[in-house]
């Protein structure tokens, strides 16, 4: 089961309202390379990992990604909480306001709602881990795009931090992929 801890993994305190940035950032909340897709991807793939190394790593990284979903939501909430409907309208968030008010709703930067079609779960550990490695690289690239779109240090700090997490997760997935690939090729894990 999961239980909640009432703190963020990394501190976020954004003081300046920025609706345009909120509109871009939402893609890492509910877009194809976002944290919600990451969490659901790993937490669905973990059941068919061939041994406890894979089950542990996908559980632990998937759980961390749930914490990153909360970090993205926090950033979007803080960037938009003081906005008026008129300001939302001017920032191109009028239709978003009409449907959701000021609440959080997972979409990509173009307003397309989140879908589980963003990730795969094949039951093949090498295929799934290849996807996980690609997902971490794509998320790193999007974080770099997002950093390039702002000059607010309160926003850049958590984006740099989240980007670094993609690098660590990629390295761990790659390590596990190489372990499985070697063991699979050596015929030691034929039931894999």
């Amino acid at each position: 089961m999961f239980s909640y801890t009432k703190r963020l993994q990394y501190p976020i305190n954004i003081k300046r309202k920025d609706l345009a940035m909120a509109k871009y950032l939402v893609t890492q909340y509910g877009g194809s390379n976002g944290e919600m897709a990451a969490a659901l991807r790993y937490l669905n793939q973990r059941y068919t990992m061939p041994d406890n190394r894979g089950k542990a790593l996908l559980t632990d990284i998937g759980t961390e990604e749930l914490g990153h979903v909360e970090m993205l939501a926090t950033m979007i909430y803080q960037l938009t909480k003081d906005a008026t409907p008129e300001e939302m309208k001017q920032a191109g968030l009028g239709s978003n306001f009409a449907e959701h008010g000021k609440s959080l709703y997972p979409t990509d930067a173009n307003g397309v709602p989140f879908t589980v079609a963003y990730f795969a779960s094949t039951g093949d550990p090498l295929a799934d881990l290849s996807e996980d490695m690609a997902a971490e690289q794509k998320a790193r690239a999007v974080y770099e795009n997002l950093i390039d779109l702002t000059n607010d240090p309160d926003v850049i700090a958590p984006l740099l931090w989240l980007r670094q997490r993609e690098i660590v997760h990629y390295a761990r997935f790659k390590e596990l992929f190489e372990m499985y690939e070697k063991e699979f090729k050596n015929g030691q894990n034929q039931k894999m």
């Binding site: 770099e144 950093i147 931090w161 980007r163 670094q164 690098i167 660590v168």
Partner: peptide, 17 residues
């Protein structure tokens, strides 16, 4: 955002906050 010095990769010339 990274405990492992061998995995740490900065972005451009940004420094961690």
């Amino acid at each position: 955002g990274n405990m492992f010095s061998n995995l740490y990769e900065p972005y451009k010339n940004y420094k961690p906050a």
